[in-house]
């Protein structure tokens, strides 16, 4: 039976007039990859910092490994690893020395520490750079170093706070693969991000938050089922008549139609073969189009429908 690794109940955190966390709760089971998703300023990092007892909070309860988390619970901290949003390494130490230093804060045995450090460097694939100083590393390599420093001591619970910000695609993939592997090796992962694609790819369960509140929580499928939209049919078509739009609105399971910049988006709720119906309609009316495809709703859609805004600022 899996243990509850993290339990947060009714957490409230205020910064003067601003409520950063508003009766926020979550539960994370052992072995999960738990995603914390939300736009900038939603309270993800605040949640993490309260969980780690770095930030004080006004009300609520935080438990880790079944015990109340406090700043001086060094025994609990020994089982946690953190990969922070900002790269937190010493510029005066080499790659190897940095990982060695932070691992040494947890592991006393020299031989074991050395083994862990080498494994961590291999794991993030920066062994070739072990004698480099952080200033000489690219952004992606720095992020990998940051990860190595956080996981070298093989913690049971690992928290990744937006680890792929400003990282090249190759490094990003490498990081995501690495996280999956860590989970496979038994670690419970908390992954915060505002990149829904990463969360969807990686996480078993996702909690979407905004303005310090939980918006929705569940698996990706569960979240998608929460909203009306089950499928979007997208058609690239030029010079579409208004009457066509009206006709399409009348098709089965269609609840919303938008036409902008030569792209027709048809939102369907429920039903099967919705794309076939649309294709048949265009064939009937002998309308030419460039492209037609169907896509499942994203977490952004979930967020949009619930809150009325985008998960991420338009790029």
């Amino acid at each position: 039976m899996s243990q509850t690794v993290v339990e947060i109940n009714n957490l409230v955190k205020r910064y003067k007039e601003l409520i950063a966390l508003d009766n926020f709760s979550l539960k994370i089971e052992e072995g999960e990859v738990f995603g914390l998703l939300g736009p900038n300023g939603s309270g993800k990092t605040t949640t993490i910092n309260c969980l780690l007892s770095l930030l004080s909070y006004d009300k609520g309860e935080v438990k880790v490994f079944g015990e109340a988390m406090k700043p001086d619970r060094l025994d609990l901290k020994a089982r946690i690893g953190v990969v922070s949003q900002n790269v937190a390494v010493f510029n005066e130490l080499t790659v190897y020395e940095n990982v060695d230093f932070f691992c040494g804060l947890y592991i006393k045995d020299k031989k074991l520490k050395k083994q862990y450090v080498n494994e961590a460097l291999e794991f993030v694939d920066i062994m070739d750079f072990k004698n480099f100083y952080p200033k000489k590393l690219s952004g992606g390599l720095l992020r990998r170093l940051n990860i190595a420093c956080g996981i070298a001591h093989k913690p049971e619970l690992i928290i990744f706070d937006e680890p792929t910000v400003a990282v090249d695609p190759q490094s990003r993939n490498r990081i995501l693969e690495g996280i999956a592997e860590l989970n496979k090796n038994g670690a419970t992962i908390i992954y915060t991000s505002h990149y829904m694609e990463e969360v969807e790819q990686l996480c078993n369960r996702v909690l979407i938050m905004d303005k310090g509140k939980m918006i929705a929580c569940g698996t990706s499928d569960e979240l998608r089922r929460m909203i009306k939209n089950s499928e979007s049919v997208v058609v690239n078509i030029k010079r579409l008549d208004e009457s066509v739009i009206e006709d399409i609105k009348k098709l089965n399971h269609v609840y919303d139609v938008r036409y902008m910049n030569d792209i027709l988006t048809i939102k369907c709720s429920g039903g099967k073969h919705n794309i076939t119906h649309v294709v048949e309609y265009f064939a009937e009316r002998q309308l030419n189009y460039d492209r037609i495809y169907s896509e499942l709703p994203t977490l952004n859609d979930v967020f949009l429908e619930i809150t009325g805004k985008e998960l991420r600022d338009k790029e």
Binding site: L54, L74, D75, K77, V82, N86, A88, Y106, C149
Partner: peptide, 16 residues
């Protein structure tokens, strides 16, 4: 933790 990023990392560690 309130002074630097490295400080935060050390603060969450188990070192006295």
């Amino acid at each position: 933790a309130n002074q630097s990023d490295v400080g935060a990392r050390v603060d969450v560690s188990s070192v006295g």
